[in-house]
Design a protein around this nucleic acid. Structure first.
Lengths: 254, 254
DNA sequence: AAGCGCGTTACGATAGGCGTAACTTGAAAC
DNA sequence: GTTTCAAGTTACGCCTATCGTAACGCGCTT
């Protein structure tokens, strides 16, 4: 009998698994029982019981073909959450304002579990635009989301940088030394611009949202197609984002 | 040893309770452990374990003062859900369109657990407007949400009408007989207008969204302050909502 | 300093929930 | 048409995850 994780006990395993189920359905709409069970390495009866419970409460919905999707209760939870998470509630209108002015997609990203996580976004009404998605994760080491790393304590920073850096495009930095140097530069200049590090043909500009003590709360970001983005646009984005960042900081109480 | 519910077993109780906890936090931001436990009639250790589990997964967040709110994972779930629930995904842009044209608040409501439940909404940019909220429940028997009742089978209908009808304003219908007659009228004319039945000074217009077989899926609704709503406006709303309703029906595949 | 109520921990008892195995159903294979 | 396979489901006895009791620490109020 292995001792599981010695770190923190006192969690309810069945609840933990049910969260896995929920997230699995969220990621894979119209997933089937068997598939969920496989993904999680659990038995079918167990997952069936979980799904049934979740279904009874409207968190998931079973289609007549036997596939599962999230349900209306999940929508309700989510809407409630966006009004309860201060950062998101405050950032949303500001993201929209920046997005309107820049006429490009904006995002709010935080560090979560060693990755950057999009928790709010705005997309302008425009045929061609960068697609953002709440819940999408990206490595911390590529693109302008590096700002999230730049303000961490050097030791924590190194701890978050994996041995081998994932290469997304040919411009992605894959040398740890170079990355650390880049982070240093970012910290000095207060923003980060990335040209095609995450996706080819995409420019991404990020500015950190800092707490009173200088620790990073989040990053605000503008993403745009490279072909229509001049140096002057980038400069404008930086100014907009810096304003937005301090507005958010202020509204959070600093 | 009482046999619990003989109806449907095979649900995981701890998961069921954890959903209660989640919904409780959703309804009462900054709630404390003790309060949740009281609300649910559970012991504190049990709820503590649940909250801890939920916290580890980012579904709730514990503030430094010890109060709980929903967390970022809930936002992610919710956003995913809105793209997965067909009805909501399809209705959203249509609700916006109607809302823009009417320049008033619009809602999409379904029957859930004997009540009407708001699952999508649009509010126009306007200083004074009706406030709508996703997740808010209203009785089926008052206001224009009666349309949701009007198309049910008479027996199911009667089953859903409680003995005593809740009185929200002096205009609320509280007589069962009168209500049934009203429902009949609604079914014949295909829409329902309510003047101050739910809130004084509010006009509400609803049109059913019907499936191919004539069963009710949902209701689309415009809500407006009475003082600025003429008969002609109401007529306009009805036309807009009827268009919207058939557009939604069509897009759902009928 | 005593009292209260909150969050938390410890632990032993128990029934909740687990997995195995078997059954049903429906669709694909041949 | 029969066989085969896999998915979904049910049944049930065992076991451990999870529960509640009781006790503790802590901060605030009286």
């Amino acid at each position: 009998m292995d001792k599981r994780q010695p770190s923190k006990s006192d969690i309810v395993q069945s609840v933990d698994v049910c969260i896995d189920v929920l997230l699995n359905v969220a990621k894979n709409p119209d997933i089937r029982l068997t598939e969920v069970a496989q993904n999680l390495g659990e038995t079918k009866p167990r997952i069936l019981r979980m799904l049934r419970t979740l279904e009874r409460r409207g968190l998931v919905r079973k289609s007549d073909t036997g596939t599962y999707r999230l349900g209306t209760t999940a929508i309700i939870l989510g809407t409630a959450a966006s009004t309860q998470v201060d950062l998101v509630r405050i950032a949303n209108p500001i993201l929209e304002e920046v997005g309107q002015k820049a006429n490009e997609t904006t995002q709010l990203r935080i560090i979560d579990n060693g990755e950057s996580l999009c928790i709010a976004k705005f997309e302008p009404m425009r045929d061609l635009r960068v697609q953002a998605m709440i819940g999408r994760r990206r490595p911390l080491t590529a693109g302008s989301y590096k700002v999230l790393l730049a303000y961490l304590h050097p030791q924590v920073q190194l701890q978050m940088i994996p041995e081998t850096l994932p290469r997304l495009t040919k411009r992605t930095i894959t040398d740890r030394g170079k990355l650390v140097a880049e982070l240093d530069k970012i910290r000095r200049q207060g923003f980060c611009v990335s040209y095609g590090e995450v996706s080819e043909q995409l420019v991404s500009v990020s500015v950190p949202v800092l707490a009173f003590d200088g620790s990073v709360i989040a990053a605000v970001n503008v993403g745009a197609p490279a072909f229509r983005t001049q140096k002057s646009d980038v400069d404008r984005f930086i100014v907009l984002l810096k304003e937005a960042s301090s507005k958010i900081s202020a509204r959070l109480g600093w």
